[in-house]
């Protein structure tokens, strides 16, 4: 079902994702880590496209890059002070956690390759999902949808409350 072009795309995306992930995990510069997030998000969005989830892919780009990533960049640039270019992003306990993580990935790999996964016949052609998602969100998944919007409202209010207090502290000093 996967054409050679999709194989090629998968390889390219994997390269991007692994490079970005390593930069996030190992870079000594926090700003590089934050910018590497872009690569990871774009790579995962590419996977979504390969897996036929076109709407999720675009939403991933829109929300993660347009919203979350810019938010992170703001936070990184604001907490470091504008003049401080060489940010350190030190790590602790690398000697203990690195072997553990290697063991974890080996275990997960073994799990993935030995388990008999349920695969429904042959995955079909990639079809547009937007209309179906819209219908499902307003019928079957209406309650989670509304709960999510309440959660977002709560987040909005809470974030503004937290951030405003900080502004007042600055004004006093």
């Amino acid at each position: 079902m996967m054409t050679p072009m999709q194989d090629l795309a998968f390889a390219a995306l994997s390269g991007i994702v692994i490079a970005a992930g390593c930069l996030i995990a190992f870079s000594r510069n926090l700003v590089y880590s934050a910018f590497a997030l872009l690569g990871a998000f774009v790579g995962v969005a590419g996977y979504f496209v390969l897996l036929g989830a076109d709407f999720v892919a675009v939403i991933q780009l829109l929300v993660y890059i347009g919203g979350i990533m810019v938010l992170y960049l703001f936070a990184v640039l604001m907490t470091s002070g504008i003049g401080d270019v060489t940010l350190t992003n030190r790590s602790i306990a690398t000697k203990a956690s690195a072997p553990l993580c290697i063991v974890l990935i080996i275990l997960l790999g073994k799990l993935i390759y030995t388990t008999e996964w349920y695969v429904a016949a042959e995955p079909t052609e990639i079809a547009p999902t937007t209309a179906a998602i819209g219908n499902a969100l307003l019928t079957e998944y209406l309650l989670p949808f509304e709960l999510a919007s309440v959660l977002l409202l709560g987040t909005l209010v809470g974030t503004v409350a937290l951030a405003r207090r900080g502004v007042k502290v600055i004004k006093k000093s």
Binding site: L38, D54, F55, I59, L61, L62, G66, V70, L73, T130
Partner: peptide
């Protein structure tokens, strides 16, 4: 694209990241 409009809005977000990067990278 069947999500064309969202795609356009999403890619214009990459520009924002590029501008922050230009601003930060210039030192």
């Amino acid at each position: 694209l069947n999500v064309g409009l969202l795609f356009i809005f999403a890619t214009s977000a990459i520009t924002a990241v590029g501008l922050v990067m230009a601003g930060w990278g210039s030192g």
